[in-house]
């Protein structure tokens, strides 16, 4: 089946005064219709830059230096600002971490929702209101007719995030990109939002890219995971395979560092060292200074993605996986 989104060899750079740095390095990913993909990695790995580049929201000094992004077969990375605007917030919607930032505090929810619809669709005010009500009901907001006339501050954090999701659904998008959508919320509300996203993907055939640092959340919500480190996807595959049988030493370390993997009270596993900054990414494998399995080749040669399991598409960029380094 043709993927809904196909990213090929994407490079995103930032032209800084001190020189040009590469934030996304030769990234390729594809997403099927209705599929839920998780992007995980620690702070600064490039998750958000990747999300922004799909909808061409990379702002100066950032730019797409190489590669292409295809959406429903069209190369949207070549689109003009005007063309991409017809897609952004219409066929591809985004949800960000802070629900207050995405809502205008001085306009009612109803006004914001109908404006969002009328910006993309040719219809009457009444029709737009009917769609707004329908979407609010879909995200389980009780008594939506009353809610249309209320302002954002009159809602709790969880309700605001559900309203953002309702807004992102207004145009029946094909793809939702959610960047840490529940990081600011309590676990009970987080669980509710995640259940809602799964439900919507299943009932509407929508695809989802869920960006998060929380491995528990991705493991519950997504079908496939891409793990990022220093601007590269270092491992990708079915969620279950990555969680139960990680191949890249960094993924293994991340999972081992979780409290769940040790008996209460025992010292936790620590990945030595720190994520490199973009200005000093080590040559060879970017993870090599921190890797317990490192060999000679890792310091000089950059590992390319190799199959760990061709059948499921489980891949990792590590010399151990490609067989260039014996374990």
């Amino acid at each position: 089946m043709e993927p809904i989104l196909d990213i090929k060899n994407l490079d995103v750079k930032f032209a800084l005064r001190t020189g040009t740095v590469t934030a996304i390095d030769n990234l390729s990913l594809s997403l099927a219709k209705g599929e839920r993909l998780g992007i995980v990695g620690e702070s600064g790995a490039g998750k958000s830059v990747m999300g922004f580049s799909i909808i061409n929201l990379i702002r100066k000094p950032g730019y797409i230096a190489n590669g292409s992004i295809y959406f429903r077969g069209e190369e949207i990375s070549r689109y003009s600002e005007e063309e991409i605007r017809a897609i952004r917030g219409n066929r591809i919607s985004t949800i960000f971490q802070d629900p207050m930032m995405a809502l205008n505090p001085v306009l009612t929810i109803g006004t914001q929702m109908t404006e969002a619809i009328l910006a993309h669709m040719d219809m009457t005010q009444e029709e737009a209101e009917r769609i707004a009500l329908e979407k609010l009901a879909k995200v389980h907001i009780p008594a939506p007719e009353k809610r249309l006339n209320q302002y954002p501050h009159e809602f709790s954090g969880g309700m605001r995030q559900r309203i953002i999701i309702a807004i992102s659904l207004l145009t029946d998008p094909d793809l939702i990109i959610a960047d840490e959508p529940t990081t600011a919320l309590d676990v009970t509300i987080q669980a509710e939002i995640m259940d809602l996203l799964i439900e919507l993907c299943e009932s509407e055939g929508m695809s989802l890219i869920l960006i998060t640092h929380d491995l528990g959340v991705v493991s519950e919500v997504t079908e496939r995971i891409a793990v990022m480190y220093a601007g590269r996807v270092i491992e990708t595959g079915p969620t279950e395979a990555i969680i139960k049988n990680p191949q890249h030493p960094y993924t293994q370390g991340l999972l081992k560092a979780l409290p769940e993997s040790r008996t209460p009270g025992e010292p936790l596993y620590q990945i030595p060292g720190m994520m490199p900054t973009l200005t000093d990414i080590p040559p060879g494998c970017a993870f090599n200074p921190r890797c317990p399995m490192r060999g000679e080749i890792c310091i000089t040669k950059r590992p390319e993605a190799a199959f760990a399991d061709e059948h499921t598409g489980h891949m990792a960029a590590c010399h151990l996986v490609s067989g260039d380094l014996a374990s």
Partner: peptide, 21 residues
């Protein structure tokens, strides 16, 4: 309810959904 909401690695479980706010 609080404990049922914790996402667990590799487990797709159902959450107790609390009514109201």
């Amino acid at each position: 309810a609080l404990l049922s909401a914790i996402p667990q690695l590799g487990v797709k479980k159902s959450h107790i959904r609390l009514k109201g706010e």
